[in-house]
Simulated assay, not measured.
Amino acid sequence: MTKPLEGIRVLDWTAWQQGPVATALLADMGAEVIKIEPPEGEPGRGMLKMYGADLPLNFYYQNQNRGKKGIVLNLQNEKAREVLYKLVEKSDVFVTNYRESAARRLKIDYETLKKYNTELIYALSSSFGPKGPDADKMSADFAGQARGGIWSITQSEDMVPTPIGAGFADEVGGLMTAYGVILALLSRERFGMGQRVDASLLAGQIEMGRLQFQMYFMMGIVPPGSVMAAARNPLYYIYKDCDSKWFAIAALQADRFWPQFCKVFGIEELEKDPKFENQLVRGQNFDELKPMLLDIISAKPRDHWLQRLEEAGIPSAPVQDYAELAVDPQVIANEYVVEIDDPIHGKVKVPGVAVQLSETPGAVERLAPELGQHTEEVLMEVCGYTWDDLAKLRDEGVY
């Protein structure tokens, strides 16, 4: 089936996670993504070895570089930049998360590249945005989370900032970058112009915490640091069972589900109790109700309670680790996990495509490329170089 971004060529000069995630998302949707690396490879290739792990598949690099072609260009070399300019002439998008000062120094910034292709979409996925005193500041995922406010609302009950794993700021920054690229491609289709796209770790974290930020602006109140410490709704809470497994109840319309809730946990006598009969008074008296509920729930296993809640129609879900998530029937049914048949590594499971289109669906086609795997192929097919040309380029230190 046709994919929505088929025919779009993306040049990917990125490293680590934020930038590579953006282009991996575009590759999933059919774009031809050409990852450009230095002769030693981008630093993400060495991420696991940095921490003492040497595995056949580097999950960190694989996660954000799947579905791409890989070429080597030594962009410190002027001849290599001339090759890049030829690629730019034949491409639609250029994406980077290197600092803008580095791009300017190497003459691969937006102002330079648009001279070779006026319709180019140039996306810069930065740390803190393109303006201001920290516009060119080096950063990483943790700093984006910290500065973007998200840690102020994910604190533990003893009010200790709690980082979110999985490169949360990087993933969101990459998603926002891909979103910007697609909007720019749509604008080019409608209005015939290329343009620069700016996204950042900081902006992505603000977007993820937008509701709390809006709360601060409209109420003048800094949102509570710990959701669990501040929670006063027993129907919107996290509970632990007899096996130390956790589950969440997520009934925002608390009064609607209160009678069913009382039946599930055998506290029918509290349904009409003046201290608990509606959410206003339940919140005021939650400190009295909470230990009673914790004691009841900790006596039986999670599956028992989830089944009872399901039968009562009360929204709930298990708190799953990734081993549980991998075999979740809902995950499997929706192909949120898929299997790639790789000629070297065999069958490899990977996260699937999160957005599904009925007529032009995306798909994960292949694992990440080996270093320089497609250099000759790309330079011959896209730029028209011959084997003799390539031999000369190698001698000149281009790749």
Rank of each mutant, 00 (worst) to 15 (best):
A184Q: 00
L357V: 04
S126A: 02
L270P: 01
W258R: 00
Y60T: 10
V350G: 10
I267N: 08
E269Q: 11
D328Y: 07
Y322I: 14
A323Q: 15
E339D: 12
N233P: 05
L357W: 12
A230V: 08
A102K: 06
P329I: 08
I153F: 08
S152T: 15
S316L: 05
T118W: 06
A184Y: 00
M138S: 11
M219K: 15
E32G: 05
N77R: 05
L75H: 01
D198H: 02
W387F: 15
E6G: 05
A103P: 03
S244A: 14
S139Y: 06
G266V: 00
A250S: 14
P351V: 00
D395V: 11
Q64W: 14
A250L: 12
Q253P: 06
G397C: 07
R308C: 06
W246K: 05
S316A: 13
K131Y: 10
M47E: 12
F142C: 07
L73T: 02
I267Y: 10
G30S: 00
E376H: 07
Y122T: 10
P224L: 04
Q284V: 09
I221D: 09
K245V: 10
D303G: 13
C242A: 11
T154P: 10
Q212H: 13
A229P: 03
P4G: 01
K263T: 13
D12T: 04
Y61I: 02
